[in-house]
């Protein structure tokens, strides 16, 4: 044999490359470790000292007097998020079914890039549109015909409703794209079998295809929820940012509210040391919300396989 098969030192390059690649692969692990560490290091001692129930369930937020209750913000976040899902999920799923099962390929090719564009528009642009168009529309409703039923502070148009509508639009691309993929992934035989049994096209879609894509559709809703929960800029621009728990009843959706994300973004710039810790603690609450959502998605995906 002309060449020896024994190992050569020439493999040094290969070894160096591998080490560099491992370091790069560890960057994301490292990132999340750092983020978690600093978030908890800054926020956790505060929660401890201040008292976890006082912090989570306190209804007053008044940093100048060292009162840090984030319950109104939790309620605000939950309200706009639920409203966004209630409006956005049915529309998004309907569009997904339309794109995957009903629309001719030509139409899908036109609508798909539009959905992608919707996903790409910066949140501040949504916010701007929200202030000028959606808030104005809500204001003319709240200040006009509904004026006599609403307190004055509920008539500005900055509201749960404005936030919910803007977020609903913003989560549409997430729900549409992921649901449509899930529906397309359902084997064609399922539908053919249903059609073979004499179902109409819609019956087979409704009773066979959509149920088969259920976990993908639920995943899309959870990811949409995550997006709505974490959205900051657009929501600051339209929700009014008042720290208050809205009135119970239909009037509540016209109340201006502040979200957890908005609280951090609005006050971080000028916060003193303790105030800042309280904002990091707010970040922890947000982080935990998201992690719970992520775990649900992960569990769903696991069940799928």
């Amino acid at each position: 044999m002309q060449q020896t098969l024994k190992k050569k030192a020439a493999n040094l390059e290969e070894r160096i490359v591998k080490i560099i690649l491992i370091i790069m692969a560890l960057a994301s692990v490292f990132s999340i470790g750092l983020i978690g560490f600093f978030l908890f290091k800054e926020g956790l001692p505060f929660v401890w000292n201040y008292g976890i129930t006082n912090f989570l369930f306190g209804t007053t937020w008044n940093p100048t007097n060292q009162i840090y209750g984030i319950f109104p913000m939790i309620i605000g976040t939950v309200l706009v998020t639920i409203l966004a899902i209630v409006i956005g999920a049915p529309i998004g799923i309907a569009v997904a079914v339309f794109l995957a099962e009903v629309a001719p390929a030509r139409l899908t090719r036109i609508i798909k890039p539009m959905v992608d564009l919707l996903a790409g528009i910066p949140s501040v642009v949504y916010g701007l549109f929200g202030i000028v168009v959606i808030r104005s529309m809500i204001r003319s409703l709240a200040h006009g015909p509904l004026g006599e039923y609403l307190p004055g502070t509920y008539q500005t148009g900055y509201s749960v409703l404005a936030g919910g509508i803007i977020l609903a639009i913003m989560i549409l691309p997430t729900i549409i794209t992921i649901s449509a993929d899930a529906i397309r992934a359902v084997p064609k035989e399922y539908k053919e079998a249903a059609l073979g049994l004499g179902s109409t096209d819609w019956q087979s879609v409704y009773s066979v295809v959509v149920p088969a894509a259920k976990s993908g559709i639920i995943t899309s809703i959870i990811l949409g929820t995550g997006r709505a929960l974490g959205e900051t800029m657009a929501i600051i621009m339209v929700a009014g940012n008042t720290v208050q728990i809205p009135e119970f009843g239909w009037q509540g959706i016209f109340a201006p509210v502040r979200t957890l994300t908005g609280n951090v973004a609005l006050e971080m710039g000028y916060a003193g040391p303790e105030h800042r810790q309280a904002l990091f603690a707010t970040g922890i609450v947000l982080f935990i919300f998201i992690m719970i959502l992520n775990s649900i998605t992960l569990a769903l995906v696991k069940k799928e396989h």
């Binding site: 692969a25 560890l26 994301s28 692990v29 990132s31 999340i32 750092l34 983020i35 600093f38 978030l39 800054e42 995550g226 929960l229 974490g230 959205e231 900051t232 994300t261 951090v264 973004a265 971080m268 904002l279 990091f280 970040g283 947000l286 982080f287 998201i290 992690m291 959502l293 992520n294 992960l298």
Partner: peptide
């Protein structure tokens, strides 16, 4: 592990990145 952290990183709200970036 890397898959999981990548997924988790993708889910973190941008304001939390902001908080971390600010303090770090």
């Amino acid at each position: 592990v890397i898959r999981f952290t990548t997924e988790a990183l993708a889910g973190i709200p941008s304001i939390v990145f902001g908080l971390f970036g600010f303090i770090f």
